[in-house]
Simulated scan of single mutants.
Amino acid sequence: MLVNATVEIEKAANILKLLGDKTRLTMIKLLFSHDCCVCEFVAMFNTSQPAISQHLRKLKDAGLVNETRRGQWIIYSLNKENEFYPMVSELLEHLPNQDFKLKELEEKGLRISCD
């Protein structure tokens, strides 16, 4: 029992360490209510596509996000089946809404429509 508790604490610490990055935390908060494409994150954070892809890869490797291909687009969503989703969800409830970032993209005509 003690070994499992230690493993779980270590896994939770790794998740929290991942979310300790402002960009990844903001991405997860956005994905809490909206699916997003890499291009949207690139425009939103005004950073390179490889940098955004690296953040998303870390989140995906941890099981926090899912990716779905829609034609040429890869859409990211929050993985609600992840064992740490309840903990992450609780944390996200305490953070300010980030939907204004998507609204800003829409106003600039940069919101992707992949349907």
Rank of each mutant, 00 (worst) to 15 (best):
M44W: 00
L19D: 03
L18F: 02
A13L: 09
L18Y: 01
L59Q: 07
L25M: 15
M27G: 08
V65S: 05
C39K: 15
Y76K: 04
T26N: 05
K101I: 11
N97I: 03
I52E: 05
F41A: 12
F100E: 09
S33E: 11
T6C: 06
L91Q: 02
E107Q: 14
V42D: 10
Y85S: 01
H55W: 10
G109A: 06
K29W: 09
E40H: 06
L31H: 05
R111Q: 09
G71M: 05
K22D: 14
K22L: 14
L59I: 06
K108A: 13
G109I: 09
N14R: 14
L56E: 00
S48I: 10
K103V: 13
L102I: 09
Q72A: 07
S113M: 08
S48K: 13
I9C: 04
L30K: 08
V3G: 02
F84R: 06
H34E: 14
T26R: 08
H55Y: 12
K22I: 12
A62V: 01
L56H: 04
V42K: 15
F45N: 03
A51S: 14
L59K: 01
A62G: 01
E107M: 10
D61A: 11
L31R: 08
S33K: 15
S33G: 03
E81D: 10
